[in-house]
């Protein structure tokens, strides 16, 4: 069993046009920077991207939007990107906006082998249009289907050669859920160690979910909103 790939280009080599891919991260926090760069370089097109946000102009998924590689975005919040808005308003880009908890839980359901979940989010709104509704204990719930993605691309802090992953702080966000949900899961990590070095008690994503892993390079980790206080 060898899950270790040399770099992002090797790990994403078989992602082709029209693929459905999940990309971990919240805003620019915990995004798979190396794989996004490799996808831009490879130039695959007509992608359906499932990701909480769509990056910003010039970074994250914003880079893929600039190259017009994305056919459809499935996200909860997309407000930070002028190119995104331009493509959306001109009809070049299809967008499906769904509640953030629904997005997360549809990933989780895929990783747990459950076809659907029931959530009250979106009841009484346009999100409920065309969806099956059920009443449990007097409260209405929408049935939302598990995602079916060809690839999940995630970023972790540390990983080992068996694919076990550990995330750092709020860079965890959607990463462990998407890691569970891909038919093929690709993980890029800041630090790659031999199997056995990570404490089994501390592993967030067990290696069974991870098919490919590589050590990423040159993480920029751009900050979207730098907020600080002065030392008194």
């Amino acid at each position: 069993m060898n899950k270790v790939y040399h770099n992002a280009a090797a790990a994403i080599a078989d992602i082709s046009d029209n693929a459905i891919i999940m990309l971990g991260g919240f805003g620019l926090c915990g995004i798979p920077e190396n794989c996004i760069a490799a996808l831009v370089k490879k130039g695959v097109k007509h992608l359906t991207c499932i990701s909480n946000n769509a990056g910003v102009d010039g970074f994250g998924i914003g880079l893929m939007l600039e190259q017009k590689q994305v056919k459809k975005m499935i996200s909860s919040y997309v407000g930070e990107n002028a190119e995104f808005e331009r493509q959306l308003l001109s009809g070049e880009l299809e967008v499906e906006l769904i509640p953030q908890g629904t997005l997360a839980t549809r990933c989780m359901a895929a990783g747990y082998g459950m076809p659907a979940i029931f959530t009250p989010a979106g009841i009484g709104t346009e999100v409920a249009d065309g969806k099956e509704m059920r009443v449990f204990n007097g409260k209405e719930y929408l049935m939302e289907l598990a995602f079916d993605a060809d690839f999940a691309i995630v970023k972790a802090w540390k990983g080992d050669t068996d694919g076990n992953l550990v995330y750092k702080e709020t860079a965890r966000n959607f990463n462990p859920l998407m890691a569970m949900a891909g038919k093929i899961t690709i993980a890029e990590v800041e630090e790659l160690v031999p199997a056995g070095e990570l404490d089994p008690d501390h592993i967030h994503t067990p290696g069974i979910y991870v098919h490919r892993i590589f050590k990423g390079e040159h993480y920029e980790k751009r900050i979207e909103q730098r907020t600080v206080r002065k030392k008194i």
Partner: peptide, 29 residues
């Protein structure tokens, strides 16, 4: 504090923040 921003530690508004004693991290689900 200025100079102590951590790109991996943000809030839902994508602002850099800190934690207090007793805090915990978890995934979005």
């Amino acid at each position: 504090f200025e100079g102590e921003e951590d790109a991996d530690l943000i809030n839902a508004g994508k602002q850099t923040i800190t934690t207090v004693p007793g805090s915990s991290f978890f995934d979005s689900a």
